[in-house]
Nucleic acid binder design. Structure first.
Lengths: 206, 206
DNA sequence: TTCCCGATCCAACTTTCGGTTGATGGCCGA
DNA sequence: TCGGCCATCAACCGAAAGTTGGATCGGGAA
């Protein structure tokens, strides 16, 4: 018997998962959470085998955060991420947080159940599309931006000019340009608009 | 007895809705569809009272398209839009397509059921958050871009320079700039980056 | 320790790219 | 028939953006 905790902010999704998993006598949904903190509490108290975790919650805290906390418990359950989104940033964040699987919500039921079984046995279960992206990311080195650079890029994507960015960050315009140059080389582009475009495409920016 | 058809590409969501609606003896889910075309077919063949319609499908056709088609049937059922997203563009598109309600997927079950009842009686059911946005949109005139302007803005958001846009659209750079000026005035901004930022915020751009 | 590298910060120069102005023809609806 | 919107373009101008070069500070690696 595999004991499962659901974590998703949508009541519809929780009900759907309950219904889909109810058909299998091996699976037992012992609790469900509507926000990350509740998920951590349930994972601690109920000691399930697997936690099905959404990434996007309405709150500030994300499912990746909750995953990290759960995986740092004494005898942590496996965390299976189940989300709509599949940008590179989300995937990488979840994997780094210690997720033992990554599925998309449009996955067919049998694939979902198979992944739960695999996770309960300590194996990894990635949706094919996800696995492909991960490998691609491994091949071509991931351009990671420094904290300051991401701050700058964020403001650029909000439509701010260099002087506005300088004002908001309390630095000189020259510094902003310097950061931008580094961003350009890292992303392989040569203009601010192109930078936000590729950053958005690769999931660096939301 | 209210006859209902579900249209959502996620099996999990379909199962969840079925489970949530099964508790009410008045409601009868007579069919579910995984893509827009199937939804139209079911709405035609089964003649339900209400169609619960997602907006985002994996395909090119959107739920708004399907809503339009369904509402143009001889004796059309009410279409209740049920989606995650709530950008202004989505809402307006759905309402214009003839939706008789707009709910978010994180709505509590009783609210959902109440909305279905209202829709079956020919009434309108908007989630409070949605209603507020609609009113706000009514107050401040909606800046609608021409087809050419949206094409240009799209390419800008992809990081293209003016000359690149001109090349891809087979027009002169001067024309591109002209379109951009119109876009700026319509959006109330004065730079390309700011234009994409506000367009993205207002849902003009995805 | 020393050296190097990356991050953060800044100044001065150059110019391209972007934005402004103004003008034309076509189309549609009033 | 006229006015307005759309799409198209040319020429001008300047600021904002990009380039080059350099300083400082930490934290590793050697």
């Amino acid at each position: 018997m595999i004991r499962i905790v659901l974590a998703d902010d949508h009541p519809v999704v929780r009900a759907g998962l309950r219904a889909m998993l109810a058909g299998d006598p091996d699976l037992d949904v012992v609790g469900d959470a509507a926000d990350p903190d509740e998920a951590i509490a349930l994972a601690t108290d109920l000691a399930p085998d697997v936690v099905l975790m959404d990434l996007q919650f309405g709150t500030e805290r994300t499912g990746a955060d909750a995953t990290r906390d759960i995986r740092s418990l004494p005898e942590p359950p496996a965390v299976l991420v189940l989300t709509n989104y599949d940008t590179d940033g989300d995937i990488l964040g979840a994997v780094e947080a210690g997720a033992s699987g990554y599925l998309l919500k449009d996955a067919p039921p049998d694939e979902l159940i198979a992944a739960i079984r695999a996770a309960a046995f300590g194996e990894t279960a990635l949706a094919p599309a996800i696995a492909g992206r991960l490998l691609a990311r491994m091949r071509s080195p991931q351009p990671s931006l420094s904290t300051r650079e991401t701050e700058v890029l964020h403001l650029v994507s909000d439509g701010a000019t260099n002087v506005e960015i300088a004002a908001r960050l309390h630095i000189s315009e020259a510094t902003v340009k310097s950061h931008l140059v580094h961003i350009y080389t890292k992303l392989g582009v040569s203009s601010r608009t192109a930078a936000v475009a590729t950053a958005r495409r690769t999931g660096l920016l939301r």
